[in-house]
Write a protein that binds this DNA or RNA. Structure first.
Length: 941
RNA sequence: GCCCGAGUGGCGGAAUGGCAGACGCGACGGACUCAAAAUCCGUUGUCCGAAAGGGCGUGUGGGUUCGAGUCCCACCUCGGGCACCA
């Protein structure tokens, strides 16, 4: 199915076939490598070449780097890579110094799993996979600077991942300065008394242990008890996605328990507001920005304290203005105060409900239409505004993980509370007078949410009645709450701190040791990199799958020789124990773009001068917007819209606050490429069959004699529909593959792969080749004349259009314009000699190899890579005559051709004089004639 | 449910509010060939018509406009994200 059209034995010797394309491509790839064609100069350091930088603007083009899997690339993977390559090549030809390379995100679970299964060390399989990926990417002709390629698993790389971790560990967030600062400055503030301690005691009066608690409590990377999914059967903590609906592990089907565990956390929540606010600086799509805002989930409201028999219960509400209507309170079943609030006679029913809620939680989560359930605790709280006793219930629609795990229920103003009150016969007093509704809520069929005058909303010191603005009522209520000690304005986020440790082997070891008292200490720089120790047992220790209270033991725990060390951290040699967790796979991808800039620097993670040059704020950004610095174009899949892009922004902001980088944001302009989908076929047993063996007959699909059904999905092994770039390169050449992937549609749209269609781009290159080269001799064969004015005009219109398309990443329409030009040349019987160079230069970013070959045939010895991209002559962009379509009442009825520059009155006269127009008007007098200069004429009859 | 996107020929897709369907695939016809493949030339939205020509056409219904695939309102369908978020 992937084979090229067969080439007959008697075909011209120099026809552009798959075989010739391959020969050309491999030759030029070797040449580029030998000449270092795509090596990008830095302003300083070992890769410096000031001469090649002078006078050239810079641009940093970045792909989301891949995880090098064992199965290699399929044609869906390089869609974005081809796009960035074309853009990079175009930018080089328009005078830019282009940063463009590729690294590998090579730590992670699949390599570890593979190692567990095969016994082969993940370092070995990873190295083999990286080698294979590099080979496949090179075969596509990507113009990477290979010297800058890194793998997150190189000790020379993760040394700096560990260093950045220590920067974060040694920092705290100063909420007044609104930035991270070194923890030593916090200690200095406490020591000098500039900063008061929580209990007002002098720093010097505290014990070392007490001071430690305060310092550890401020670090941006800290150890804490965090709720995790503990899977004793696997011996690891698993992510939410890896837990099935019935609370078992995806892998192995073992029970998973929610419990607290000591874990490394990152205080990303300190940056929540800046992560939202700085989205405004970025050229990202609104969709991605919305996803990030959504994920951070900021809500403004108030904390309100309700007195209860178990002490104050704090709730978070976005509608403090409705507090007069709070007639009951609901706690999450897991809320820690539930035991103390439950009265003896309610004990059994509450226990039963809590048990129920705990066991079926995850399945029912999916079901938002389900009826509300809940039980009363038997206790009452006091509504601080009304002084009334209100019952305290528990219900599973209140979540422990959001806000405070408790809500005040305002049934007239919240739909869930409304339904709950209806169900359990709780009172629903109206506190607003909605338009078109009576105050008798028995007549309501839903809660009322919106602006409307408040009623029944006053006490001795607060009167909201007749206020018709929610915002005003909120403000007044918040003031009252604060003044009376019942609460304060508050902001809540959905974003949680980032759980940063994994009980696994194939990751970056933490550069942390613990002293005998269990206090963590960062390793000094001289101890970095802390190399991942060699071992041949990669699996974490597993436990009885049902032993909920077992404790994780990572593979590193077993390496006694490694975990116990003696170090001098300033007070003489002392025994320490190493941290045995590793970092999550996200860590390495949080800063890789910075290492590309200065990949071999052993003194710093990046030379500040080099960093400023590539990442610093720019005078002008995309489309004339402000450019706050960062990568100029970042291309990758939308699947990283939240986690990677949020974590990387967070790390970058810490580095910015500490003065290590010059840009506030790592990725200025983000472009999400679409996916390549592919047909997958299932037989009657619902089992996928090899897509390459399926044939279509009369709109039905058959695998052998069996009828199969078609569906569309991401390309991959599991759907048995993967097509490899190696096959396509072999059959048609990489240039055809590049063109096909780009011509399929806009880069940001997903589209189905059709091997059948690839031949279209192959034919295009074949015709292009034939227009310039004699297929029999392989010699240059241009028309023996210069282009006519008409052809010149077409060429210059094409130049103009292709430039616009390239700038806007519209490679599909750029290709269409080039095909159109080439088709015109085919009609002429070949390429006029003065058109050949612009033609080859325009095709060069797209079909890089064939362009190099043709460029050489045109007599040039230099690579086409740095030749100036053609510039359109404005004089040739305007035509001598213009054909105007003439519409009558919006329908085209005729055409007139007039000289360019004819005044509208002249165009109108010509239109009204046209035979067809006269016939169509049939004597009717035009009421109005609209002439759009250069466009068209519309006659209103 | 909420938040983003998108609906155009047989298929992938083009179209600063100004000639809908560029370009490619497929299909059909022709050239070359003993024949086929490859290659080349031509036709190809749909309906009526021998043709000239005409009617209808961008998910549905309304609106703005001289003019709407494009802008506005309502709805339908599909894709993505979040979801009992207080």
């Amino acid at each position: 199915m992937t084979s090229a059209p067969t080439t007959p034995d008697d075909a011209p010797k120099f026809r552009y076939t798959g075989a010739l394309a391959q020969e050309i491509e491999l030759r030029w790839q070797d040449r580029w490598e030998a000449d270092g064609t795509f090596e990008t100069p830095n302003p300083a350091g070992p890769l410096a070449d000031p001469e090649r930088i002078a006078g050239r603007p810079k641009i940093f083009v970045l792909d989301m780097f891949p995880y090098p899997s064992g199965t290699g690339l399929h044609v869906g993977h390089p869609l974005g890579f081809i796009g960035t390559d074309i853009y990079s090549r175009y930018k080089r030809m328009t005078g830019f110094n282009v940063m463009y390379t590729m690294g590998f995100d090579a730590f992670g679970l699949p390599a570890e799993q593979h190692a567990v299964e095969t016994g082969q060390h993940p370092a070995i399989t990873t190295a083999a996979n990286v080698t294979n990926y590099r080979r496949q990417l090179r075969r596509l002709g990507l113009s990477h600077d290979a010297r800058r390629s890194i793998s997150t698993t190189d000790p020379g790389y993760y040394r700096w991942t560990q260093w950045i971790f220590l920067q974060i560990f040694n920092s705290w967030y100063d909420t007044e300065a609104d930035k991270a600062r070194p923890i030593s400055e916090l200690v200095a503030q406490y020591e000098s008394g500039d900063r008061a301690t929580a209990d007002g005691r002098a720093w010097g009066d505290m014990s070392a242990a007490e001071r430690n608690v305060i310092v550890e409590g401020h670090r941006l990377a800290y150890v804490s008890d965090a709720p995790v999914n503990w899977c004793p059967g696997l011996g690891t903590v698993v992510a939410n996605e890896e837990v099935t609906a019935d609370g078992r592990s995806d892998r192995g089907n073992f029970p998973v328990f929610k419990r607290n565990m000591r874990q490394w956390m990152m205080r990303i929540t300190s940056y929540a507001d800046r992560l939202i606010a700085d989205l405004d600086l970025l050229e990202w799509t609104d969709a991605i920005k919305a996803m990030q805002r959504n994920w951070i989930g900021r809500s403004e409201g108030a904390s309100v304290h309700f007195a209860s028999p178990a002490g104050p219960i704090t709730v978070f509400t976005t509608r403090p203005d409705t507090l007069f209507g709070a007639t009951f309170m609901v706690l999450a079943p897991e809320h820690p105060l539930v035991d103390r609030l439950t009265t003896p006679e309610r004990r059994d029913i509450v226990a039963q409900y809590r048990h129920q809620a705990a066991s079926k939680k995850d399945i029912d989560r999916q079901d938002d239409t389900r009826e509300k359930t809940g039980v009363a605790t038997g206790s009452y709280a006091i509504n601080p505004l009304t002084g009334e006793s209100i019952p305290i219930w528990i219900a599973d629609y209140v979540l422990m993980g959001y806000g405070t795990g408790a809500i005040m229920a305002v049934p007239c103003g919240d739909q869930r509370d409304f339904e709950f009150a209806r169900l359990y016969g709780l009172p629903i007093p109206a506190i607003q007078q909605p338009p078109d509704r009576s105050l008798d809520t028995a007549t309501w069929d839903s809660a009322f949410i919106g602006d409307a005058p408040f009623v029944n909303s006053s006490n001795d010191s607060l009167d909201l009645n007749d206020i018709d603005s929610v915002a005003t009522a909120k403000r007044l209520t918040n003031q009252w709450l604060a003044a009376n000690g019942h609460g304060e304005a508050a902001i809540t986020y959905k974003l949680r701190d980032w759980l940063f440790s994994r009980q696994r082997y194939w990751g970056e070891p933490f550069p942390i040791v613990y002293d005998l008292d269990g206090n963590p200490h960062g390793l000094p720089d001289s101890e970095l990199p802390l190399v991942l120790p060699e071992t041949d047992s990669f699996s974490p220790r597993t436990f009885d799958p049902n032993d909920e209270f077992s404790n994780p033991e990572s593979p590193l725990d077993r390496l006694e020789w490694w975990t116990h060390v003696e170090l001098d951290l300033g007070d003489g040699p002392q025994p320490y124990r190493r941290d045995t967790n590793v970092m999550p796979q996200w860590a390495g991808s949080c800063w890789y773009e910075l290492r590309y800039l200065d990949p071999t620097n052993e003194q710093q993670f990046v030379d500040p001068e080099v960093e400023r040059y590539w990442m610093g704020p720019q005078p002008e950004g995309h489309d004339g917007h402000e450019h706050p610095g960062g990568v100029d174009l970042y291309v990758g899949g939308v699947e990283h819209a939240v986690l990677h892009l949020l974590y990387a922004r967070f790390w970058h902001k810490v580095l910015f606050d500490l003065g290590h980088v010059s840009s506030k944001e790592p990725y200025y302009r983000l472009f999400n490429q679409g996916y390549i989908l592919a047909a997958a076929f299932k037989d009657e047993r619902e089992i996928y069959v090899d897509a390459t063996e399926v044939v279509e007959r009369d709109g039905n699909y058959f695998h052998g004699d069996l009828r199969v059904t078609r569906e569309w999905g991401k390309m991959g092994k599991s759907l048995k529909n993967a097509v490899t770039p190696d096959d396509i390169c072999q059959s048609f050449g990489a240039d055809t593959l590049r063109l096909y992937e780009m011509a399929m549609g806009p880069l940001d749209a997903s589209r189905p792969w059709e091997t059948r269609d690839v031949v279209g781009m192959y034919r295009f290159l074949q015709r292009l080749w034939r227009n310039v080269v004699d297929e029999e001799t392989g010699e240059l064969a241009l028309l023996d004349a210069d282009a006519t004015l008409d052809t010149q005009r077409l060429v210059h219109r094409t130049i103009n259009g292709v430039r616009d398309d390239m700038d806007a990443l519209r490679f599909n329409t750029a290709i269409a314009k080039l095909i159109e030009l080439n088709n015109q040349l085919t009609k002429l019987g070949g390429c006029p000699r003065d058109i050949a160079e612009p033609l080859v230069l325009m095709i060069a970013p797209l079909a890089a190899h064939v362009a190099e070959e043709l460029w050489a045939k045109l007599g040039h010895t230099d690579s086409v890579a740095y030749q100036p991209f053609p510039t359109a002559d404005p004089a040739l962009l305007v035509a001598e005559t213009i054909e105007y379509p003439v519409q009558i009442n919006g329908k085209v009825r005729g055409r007139v051709t007039v000289a360019a520059g004819t005044e509208p009155s002249g165009v109108e006269a010509a239109a009204l004089a046209d035979d067809k127009v006269i016939a169509s008007l049939a004597g009717a007098a035009p009421k109005k004639v609209i002439v759009i200069p250069g466009r068209m004429v519309n006659i209103v009859a």
